Amino acid sequence: MNEPVTSDTYAAHVRRLADLTGRVAAQRAEARDWHDQQCAAARRAVAEAAAQLRAAEEEVAAARSLLERVDAEVGHLWAELRSRMGARGLGDPPGPARGTADDPVPLLRGVRELLERTGQRGELPAAVNPLLALCGVAGALVAYALGAGARVFGQRYGGDLAVGMPVLALVVTLLGPVAGLAPAKRLADRRHALLGPRPMAVVLVAGVATTVALLVLSR
């Protein structure tokens, strides 16, 4: 027969079992806490990664939009430069410079302002005053010649033309100084300049002087 277990031995086994059970429960609780902490950390890491991914996607979209706007502005400025310089053989606009990280927007603004200043026409220099005076003289001579032709035409055919043509001839002759402004304007356009008050005054003075001289000599 089996020998009976003493109460002291049984109590020791019970205490040991209780101790082991408590240690297992504590380890299980510790494992659950560790698992919960790892899951929470993983969720935080995933959320942070998702936020960083969204921020990166927004930066990429903004950079792509900026690139498209910069390319469009560069194409527009390049076309304007080719138009103003008349250099159709310039080809395509240059690409971005290597090794630079500057914001292109201020750079393009500076290029735009430079083109605007370059495209502004200045007044004709004083060195072309002889040419302007020649325009006035030529306009007066052409108008006087047309007026003289009108007078001859009226005298030849007589009647009402003999009365009206001299009046028309006088009007055309008096418009001679103004007619000189047309070639002066072409001269200014070819030099990419403005026909300002001073050049106009030179043309008109030369034209008026020529017209007065022609009228005095024709008497």
Rank of each mutant, 00 (worst) to 15 (best):
A138V: 15
L20S: 13
A150K: 00
Q120E: 15
H76R: 15
G158W: 02
L187P: 00
G22N: 13
A11C: 06
H192A: 12
Q155H: 11
E123A: 13
M1W: 13
D36V: 07
G136H: 01
D8R: 12
E113A: 14
R109K: 14
R88W: 09
P106E: 01
T210L: 10
V205W: 03
D33Y: 06
L187Y: 03
L66G: 08
G159E: 09
S7L: 13
V171R: 04
R186N: 12
W78Q: 09
L114D: 15
S83P: 06
R15F: 11
H35M: 11
P130Y: 03
L134P: 06
P199S: 07
L141N: 01
A145C: 08
A42P: 00
E59V: 05
G99I: 05
A148V: 03
A45E: 00
A184L: 07
L195V: 01
P125Y: 01
V46L: 12
L17K: 07
L114G: 14
V171Y: 06
L132Y: 06
V128M: 01
R16K: 11
S65A: 14
V163G: 00
V142R: 06
L215K: 07
R44G: 12
D71L: 01
E68T: 10
L115G: 02
R44N: 13
R64S: 15
L195T: 00
M1V: 14
G176N: 13
A25R: 10
G176P: 13
D92N: 07
L168E: 10
P106R: 05
A11F: 10
A31H: 15
P4C: 06
R151Q: 10
R109F: 11
L141G: 05
G147E: 04
R84E: 15
V60F: 08
V212L: 12
A169V: 03
R151P: 04
E68I: 04
P4S: 08
M1P: 14
P166F: 03
V216I: 07
G159L: 07
T6S: 15
E73I: 07
V202S: 05
G22Q: 09
A126K: 12
R54W: 01
L81Y: 12
L20P: 09
V74S: 09
P104S: 02
E57V: 09
T173A: 08
Q37R: 15
P183M: 05
A11D: 14
P183C: 02
E59P: 01
V163M: 02
A42K: 04
T21L: 13
D160L: 10
A63V: 11
R121P: 01
T6K: 13
A179E: 04
P96G: 10
L134R: 00
A45N: 00
L174P: 00
L146S: 06
Q155F: 05
P199R: 05
T210V: 10
A25E: 10
P130F: 06
G147R: 04
S65V: 09
D160Y: 05
R198L: 13
V14Y: 10
G86Q: 05
S7V: 13
R28V: 14
A40V: 04
A127Y: 09
C135Q: 07
V163T: 05
A162S: 01
P130C: 02
